[in-house]
Design a protein around this nucleic acid. Sequence first.
DNA 1: CTGCAAAAATGAACTGCTTCAACTTTTTTC
DNA 2: GAAAAAAGTTGAAGCAGTTCATTTTTGCAG
Lengths: 204, 204
Amino acid sequence: MTGLRERQKADRNRRILEAASTLFGQMGYEAARIDTIAEVAEVSVGTLYNYFENKADLLLAIVSMEVEEVLAQGEVVVARPPETAIQAMSVLIRTYYDHSLVYLTKAMWRSAMAMTIQQPEAPFSRRYRELDAALAAQVCRLIATLQTRGDVRQGIGATALGEMAFNDLNALFTEFILDEDQPLAQLRARLDAHLSAFTTLIAT
Amino acid sequence: MTGLRERQKADRNRRILEAASTLFGQMGYEAARIDTIAEVAEVSVGTLYNYFENKADLLLAIVSMEVEEVLAQGEVVVARPPETAIQAMSVLIRTYYDHSLVYLTKAMWRSAMAMTIQQPEAPFSRRYRELDAALAAQVCRLIATLQTRGDVRQGIGATALGEMAFNDLNALFTEFILDEDQPLAQLRARLDAHLSAFTTLIAT
DNA sequence: CTGCAAAAATGAACTGCTTCAACTTTTTTC
DNA sequence: GAAAAAAGTTGAAGCAGTTCATTTTTGCAG
């Protein structure tokens, strides 16, 4: 693990990710040229392509790091869920939403989403879907907890409910990302409206 | 409307769509070259780009025609919905699902979806989202009918329920499209599982 | 330390979508 | 019906992402 080759490899990987992250943020995903990223990372274009399958793959590596952070934050909420069912759901999903534009722009999200759809077999597309599934599972676990606590009616699996909720909240997020004019506040408002309807359905 | 220029324009448009449709179907979206499409349509590449913004836009024009057909078929179901709530929903959504691979391949769907996300402002992306909204509205209308008929509980707006259901069914469809190995039968099975949970939630 | 094999880096060439300045056709004007 | 204007067509050049044969570097055995 401490061989020269290993260390150089890890370092190049880091430099590429750092360069890409900076440039995507500064000038947007589309405008950032592979040549420029390679130059800033101090590797050749060919080497960059030894480390990442293509440009979108590089972006998805960055997106994945972002989602991993959100997952960790969500874990805190699930561990100690707020009082009411609607509050608990609202706090968890806001954790997701509020974090979404810290490191990434809407354009970056759009490109990342587009790639996972277009090339579902690429390694980082798989990783992205895994993380997405992990987020959905987190929502399911929250609902299961609420069910145990007696805030959500029995008779329907927490997984079924959680996946339904997640799919809905994901759709809201996608619409938010697609509309450059929609502010985060509006996304939050729409979230609350949907959660209100949903919790009415599932409340005891 | 009968000026020479108008007629030539309509004819070129038709020829391009026909050529693209044939080639996408025959050899797949990625493998079909713009040059080839232009050649088959008997126009120059430049002309093709006068009629369509880009390759994906051309694909979306074809996808739109497909969705329009599905919308018309769905209208028949909504006009005379089957006996039970779960049957009604199942029949409507199966109308959507079953029709989806008649003219389009999974790869074509993936490319179309990816483009609407990546370039939301392109004219046919807007059109695609409009059609998507029309499908969602159709589901909402079905639920409203079921509500009037007394099969679905009052107190929650049919639109809220319909949109939630649609987002869920859309997510199922997206997973189907992303997985080249998943057969239509499995999508139908998953649909029934989700609808079962959903109708339990919303039934009177 | 030297030579050899394996691994990795390199960047010029390639690919296929897209653009645009020059050209052609159609319509309008007088 | 000729001339001017408007609309539309054309294909070669441009562009940016990607590939791959060549070169360089690293690890290892003798």
